[in-house]
Design a protein around this nucleic acid. Structure first.
Lengths: 191, 191
DNA sequence: GCTCCATACTCATAAATATGAGTATTAATC
DNA sequence: GATTAATACTCATATTTATGAGTATGGAGC
């Protein structure tokens, strides 16, 4: 019962189809949840049978029809109950960090490349979130938007995602640099 | 096959028992992996039967005996293979962010409390990581340690954890402040 | 003497997540 | 005109992760 609330939350931003949610969750919904397409379709089916969302067929020309979903009253109550429940601590599981942890005992070459790869991915998200922020606040500046804007929730999570990705990018680059410099100094030395 | 490598990585820092690993993974191994005790014992059993670690009984006085584990040659190869495999993108799933996303439509009271709670948890980890860094680098300063230290892997992941927790704390506090101020301005207004 | 806590583990099962494969329609590109 | 890409979904299953309950020993405090 966890993806469930993320889907409900995403559907508050508008009427989306499973496929559209796929795109949203692929980026990580402003970096706070990820889900594969199959999970989303399954979850939508469950949500609909529990009457927390209602689907509506949209006939399209030039492409397959789709079903878009809206959160119901019951869905809102479910979200409210979720919001009132105790928060779970954020549990992180990161492949790359495990690799860095053991980097001293292994060849750093590949790891450095992977750190750059991750840094680039973070930079891409950073840019994406930056644009998203501009779009969300329209012609207001950040301060007044946060004070007077209609809906700041998505803006706030986006700010969070931005922070996270910025740190991720910088950490990756710093770590890559450190490992790279150490590798240079150890060249020729026996392992 | 994911916890597996995190366990191997942790065991490179020393000979640990399942129970000791429990404590290490409870904090999140410098914030990059979490696992419950039962998972760890199960994984250790599998690792041992695959000969990637070897266990050794340690007889203790005053408390139950324990079995501590060491990574074998085969275990090192497994880690090397893991390090060479492509990195998986970091997938985040955060309860609290979902709540913030929908904060405009729900009562902010509880959420603000939860944000403070999370901020405190982050601050606690921050302090922990700070101490850990000092312990790891001994009497060297950070720069020289990163250049000349024996094993910088755990130090680098700890730096990453520190960054992350710092941002988490600040984001939570900023978000709580924003929501709090908005709540004040909306007092008395109809929903 | 009794309870509580920390150490040190095990067994079983439920829930969530990940992955592979497949279907169908149309638009765009070579 | 054939291939590729994008939209829009479904079915099935494997793997991972989470959770609840239980066992045992000894030390510390009341």
């Amino acid at each position: 019962m966890a993806l469930r609330h993320a889907v409900l939350a995403a559907l508050l931003d508008g009427e989306y189809s499973g496929y559209q949610l796929t795109k949203i969750f692929d980026v990580g919904v402003s970096n706070f949840w990820y889900a594969a397409p199959q999970q989303l379709y399954a979850e939508l089916a469950k949500l609909e049978s529990d009457a927390l969302v209602t689907g509506r067929e949209v006939v399209q020309r030039g492409r397959p029809n789709k079903r878009v979903f809206t959160v119901t009253e019951a869905g809102m109550s479910e979200l409210a109950a979720f919001a009132a429940s105790p928060v779970k601590p954020l549990l992180i599981r990161d492949d790359l960090a495990v690799k860095v942890h053991v980097s001293d005992l292994l060849d750093p070459e590949i790891l450095i490349a992977q750190l750059h790869e991750r840094a680039e991915a973070a930079a891409a998200k950073l840019a994406l979130f930056g644009k998203m922020l501009v779009r969300l606040r329209g012609d207001m500046d950040e301060e007044s938007f946060l004070r007077e804007g209609e809906r700041v929730g998505p803006y706030l999570t986006c700010l969070g995602g931005l922070r996270l990705e910025r740190e991720m990018r910088d950490w990756c680059l710093q770590t890559a640099r450190t490992l790279g410099e150490r590798a240079v100094h150890n060249e020729g030395k026996p392992t």
